[in-house]
Simulated scan of single mutants.
Amino acid sequence: MGERFGCYRDPAPAPGALWLHAVSLGETRAAAGLIEALRARQPDVRLLLTHGTATGLEAGRTLLREGDAQAWLPYDTPGAVRRFLAHHRPTLGLLMETEVWPVLQQAAVRHGVPMVLVNARLSERSLRQGQRLRALMQPAARSLALALAQTEGDAARLRAMGVMRVEVCGNLKFDMTPPEALMTQGQAWRQQWQGGLPRPVVLAASTREGEEGPLLAAWRSLPVPRPLLLVVPRHPQRFDEVAALMCADGWHLLRRSNWGHTPPPMAGDVDVILGDSLGEMPAYYAAADVALLGGSFAPLGGQNLIEAAACGCPVIMGPHTFNFAEAAELALQAEAAERVTSMQDGVARAVQLATSRQVQSEMSQRSRAFATAHRGAAARMAQQILALSGTAIR
């Protein structure tokens, strides 16, 4: 809490670090490729990583080297921000994706710290919301020295919001490589769950509130024997809620949190596995034949499908993917994903794919090829960042 208010017990670190803010787990994992690219070009770069969630902080620890620092992002108040900047004295600030902090950004400019929005994205909906809050958001947009956008559409919307300089570099998430250990772990889980029987596995990935009920209703309408259903809610605070929903609906449930490295011997009557863990999404994709994209079956904008593609897991998405519109469209064009209009249709198509080994295998290969074809954003962003910073980062 002290760090949230810009109060620190430890002595101030040496000035001049490159400050990167990655709010949570997803942003921190995406930032790993950028950090690697920055260090490849400037090996002596020192980092200050800040976060807004415990999962982001934990993931960020694995990216630190000697001389780096890590802290909580201060609250966006004048006093907290002023104390944060005075204590850490970074030379350049990087905000990931959609992070906008008006007080922090204005204070950074006054302290001579250029701010860059990296892997930047802005949906049409967010642009409209920002324009309604023009008095607050436009100065924040104009305070950015640079925005490194994922797509041309994002770039156009960022300029419309008021960002003066925008470059299109692609999406960092294409540069994420699924950890081999997690992929192996997921494949081992699958073998354990199947018990030697060819039972397909359908994953509902990063589900959001309001999606599990229609999912379970559609699943119940399937003929028996059904494939194994693996459900991974997007937010950990909903794990118990989703488990209670499944049990109340009469499903036989196995929870990831109830086993260690190896699942227990699984009785044949287990209907659903609840993926109530953090940081294991590649393992879940590796265990599945096909994934239903959470957040896309309710009007929530969808979740990132790039990680699924990199793991070779075909994706069935609903009608709502406005948060990742271009990635979704590119995946459709590459035949690495399919779109349906409802959860009922999504479940039917997912089961059809999961039980058609040849079709599933071909789509899995196209998914990996799609992910590989769009790599390179980390190198492009690192070049832009270091050109902006000059030789100041030490």
Rank of each mutant, 00 (worst) to 15 (best):
210 G>A: 09
111 H>S: 10
29 R>H: 04
112 G>Q: 12
55 T>R: 13
287 A>V: 10
162 G>I: 02
133 L>M: 05
140 A>K: 00
148 L>E: 08
119 N>P: 00
364 S>T: 06
377 A>M: 08
283 A>M: 01
166 V>I: 03
94 L>M: 11
96 M>V: 15
115 M>V: 14
19 W>L: 03
188 A>T: 01
253 L>H: 06
152 E>P: 03
154 D>C: 11
343 M>E: 02
162 G>Q: 01
162 G>K: 00
325 A>L: 12
310 A>N: 01
308 A>N: 07
145 A>K: 05
373 A>Y: 08
63 L>C: 02
305 L>D: 14
291 A>E: 06
390 G>Q: 00
23 V>Q: 04
94 L>T: 06
325 A>D: 11
152 E>V: 12
94 L>N: 08
121 R>E: 02
117 L>N: 08
329 E>T: 15
193 W>R: 03
59 A>N: 04
99 E>Y: 04
277 S>K: 02
169 C>Y: 00
65 R>K: 14
56 G>Q: 04
372 T>P: 00
154 D>P: 11
41 R>A: 15
368 R>M: 09
305 L>W: 08
298 A>Y: 02
225 P>T: 14
35 I>M: 15
191 Q>K: 11
57 L>N: 03
121 R>F: 00
76 D>Y: 06
117 L>K: 05
379 A>M: 05
91 T>S: 15
371 A>G: 11
110 R>Y: 02
154 D>E: 11
46 R>F: 09
99 E>C: 07
312 G>D: 04
209 E>L: 10
66 E>S: 15
318 G>W: 09
197 L>V: 15
133 L>C: 01
365 Q>A: 15
147 A>R: 02
307 E>F: 01
369 A>S: 15
379 A>R: 12
334 A>K: 06
138 Q>M: 04
319 P>H: 12
168 V>L: 06
266 M>T: 05
96 M>F: 10
38 L>T: 07
314 P>Q: 11
332 L>Y: 02
139 P>N: 06
60 G>P: 09
228 L>I: 13
219 W>M: 09
71 A>S: 15
337 A>N: 14
50 T>K: 06
19 W>V: 13
175 D>I: 06
376 G>C: 14
334 A>L: 02
2 G>C: 04
110 R>D: 09
26 G>Y: 01
289 D>W: 12
371 A>P: 10
391 T>H: 14
96 M>T: 11
87 H>F: 11
71 A>T: 07
220 R>A: 10
217 A>S: 15
242 V>T: 14
29 R>C: 03
2 G>E: 07
255 R>W: 05
380 R>Y: 06
358 Q>A: 12
66 E>M: 06
24 S>N: 10
10 D>A: 11
319 P>M: 09
142 R>M: 01
340 V>I: 10
201 V>Y: 05
302 G>A: 11
178 P>K: 13
104 L>F: 13
4 R>N: 03
310 A>W: 01
366 R>Y: 03
268 G>L: 08
151 T>H: 14
65 R>F: 05
270 V>R: 13
105 Q>E: 14
83 R>A: 15
46 R>Y: 02
267 A>K: 12
145 A>N: 07
331 A>L: 12
75 Y>Q: 07
53 T>V: 08
164 M>H: 05
48 L>E: 13
301 G>K: 00
151 T>C: 02
228 L>E: 13
7 C>D: 01
240 D>G: 14
214 P>I: 05
243 A>H: 14
57 L>C: 04
46 R>H: 07
